[in-house]
Design a protein around this nucleic acid. Sequence first.
DNA 1: CTCCGATCCTGATGGC
DNA 2: TGCCATCAGGATCGGA
Length: 271
Amino acid sequence: MPELPEVENVKIGLIDLGSIGQAFAKIEFLRAGLRTPFPKKAAKTLEGQSVRAIHRRAKYLLFETEEFYLLSHLGMTGSWRSDEGERLKHDHVIMHFRSGLRLVFHDPRRFGVLDIFKKSELTKNKWLKNLGAEPLEETFTGEYIFSKSRKVTASIKSFLMDQRRIVGVGNIYASEALFCAKIKPTRQAGKITRDEAGLLAGCVREILLRAIKAGGSTIRDYRNSNGDEGSFQTQFMVYDRAGEPCVRCGTKLKSKTIVGRNTFWCPQCQR
DNA sequence: CTCCGATCCTGATGGC
DNA sequence: TGCCATCAGGATCGGA
């Protein structure tokens, strides 16, 4: 479900719900874990700590307290919502705050992750330590893409989705950014020119920013924490549009599986 | 080391 | 209507 724009909107939604300043009463776990076991012991030490800020790093949400970070990854189908009382199938975690606010983590496919660690361990944390550049930060440039890709024989599509190189770009935005940059997704990453890398960096940033503004993309079940759907899916140029005419040139859009993920492009515009 | 397929899990969808 | 295969916004693991 969630790539960078969706996670960014979940973060905004959680802040809108009034999470900042809230003191933890307890964290209730409704099963043993998701992709990994829940940090039940650490959750006890979190009690009494207050949420100072909520950050996004890559596709991870970070709830910052005085001494800890609580890390949440949404996997494919994870979502946070304010608990209005009804218990849904696939609700797995409930954060109880002293004010009475409760946040519920819901995740049918259970690919999500929850972790808690000391603030001093931020750079050592197993989920965060190998992450690449944030595409919305200054360090992410055409030169960064160019230099990091020189020895890569895999496709530019898989390069874009590799979180050790660039974070936050998933299957939708990889196809959209490559269309924007007029680069065929099957191209070998190491053979992208310096000019193309520059174009691609700008496209990744532009697509992600536009998607954030649109509230993310809702294809099936994505909702931000206010229950709102995103609308960027109405602006897709290629994703999920195989067989339809290219908006730029009218050529029939193609699709095929690249490293296990369905990929969409215009065979005429993208080279 | 790099690359890619298999894998985790549930639910929606489409073909027969 | 029912059954089965396929696919889905992610990321890790292990074999080649």
